[in-house]
Nucleic acid binder design. Structure first.
Lengths: 205, 205
DNA sequence: GTCTATACTACGATAGAC
DNA sequence: GTCTATCGTAGTATAGAC
């Protein structure tokens, strides 16, 4: 029942936010009583944190393959490093485009707006490793760029994929579509790849 | 008192979201009675929509100069069009970085996650003109690129600036800082400019 | 136009039966 | 481990005084 509650809660919290979602709704949708939440998680906040950890685990799982691409960064050449960066960014973009990711992606975007303890768990459990891995890859791609500039560069590249979720409504307006389907997804992913190549292939200095 | 309520409400809604903010709090912080909200706006939702329109007006004002840059797009050369795009993106990035923009930026990001009537008003009142203007500029920069690809390209460029607000917590983690101060802002804006030049200077075909 | 008082609903937490 | 019942609090809305 704990798992069932967490699954339902991620959906509710993702849709309506922490305050918008009610424990009664979550319990009802899970087919149990509200007091189960108190019993299993100690309360609404405990359930929320459990959701954050569950999401972190899911992301880690999904990005396990990507994470392997960041191993031995110092032992590969520039071409390979660029190719791996492109693969990781594309994976991230796919996640941002995937309907299944909608609820927990919204969960994370909300947390970024007003970080709580939950963000810390998301960061440590899922994001930190990936970000540090990409930073190491970029060190190979742009060895002469100062560390801070390189990290800024990294976040801006991620921003291209993030906008697909965080700015979804605007992206749809721009493309003149109601939602991002297969065709739009392919187009956006290809464009991200093109842009990222342009950004990374630039100054080798 | 209407203005006072709207100012306070934008702050509250930005911080805690629609459900998280309470009309009692908003009224108290505005130094008036809760029933004033009903009187002036018909209820919580009416106040929320009034906030959206107020924000749209503020943005329009702030981006008025940028909008002028998009005029006569068909009559300028490629170099000029690129320069204007860079100026507009930089202005947008500054907005995303500016502390004053924090609350209404959060307001908008929230709306994008789960668009309501308020997003429609924000889009029509503030975003549409700017986006269409930039699209026209990009038509000069990349005349051979298909329309849909060009619009995708535009949103991805905006994504670089959006991440500064929507992914703020992660950007801070990546840069190893608690908040984005003057130094970080300058660094990020410069990097966005560099990246955008790389993206736009690419295929002239 | 603004405030007070109040009605009604829904929330989260908790105690106790099973 | 799960449910029912209930408490106190806080939410929006509304009627009516000033």
């Amino acid at each position: 029942m704990q798992d069932r509650l967490i699954e339902t809660a991620i959906d509710c919290f993702g849709r309506r936010g922490f305050d918008g979602a009610s424990t009664r709704d979550i319990a009802r949708a899970s087919g149990t009583a509200m007091s189960s939440i108190t019993y299993h998680f100690g309360g609404k906040e405990g359930l929320y944190l459990a959701c954050a950890e569950h999401i972190a685990a899911k992301i880690s799982e999904r990005h396990a393959a990507a994470l392997e691409l960041t191993a031995d960064a110092s032992a590969i050449d520039r071409e390979t490093a660029i190719e791996r960066c492109l693969a990781i960014i594309d994976g991230f973009a796919q996640t941002m485009l995937h309907p299944d990711s909608e609820n927990w992606a919204r969960f994370i975007v909300r947390e970024q707006q007003a970080p709580t303890e939950a963000f810390e768990r998301l960061y440590l459990g899922a994001m930190k490793n990936l970000m540090e891995g990409v930073a190491a890859l970029l060190h190979v791609v742009r060895p002469a760029l100062p560390e801070r500039e390189r990290r800024a560069l990294m976040m801006l590249i991620f921003g291209q994929a993030l906008v697909l979720r965080a700015g979804r409504a605007s992206v749809c307006k721009a493309l003149g579509t109601e939602e991002l389907g297969e065709a739009e997804a392919a187009l956006l992913r290809a464009q991200i790849r093109t842009n990222t190549i342009a950004i990374l292939s630039g100054g080798t200095t």
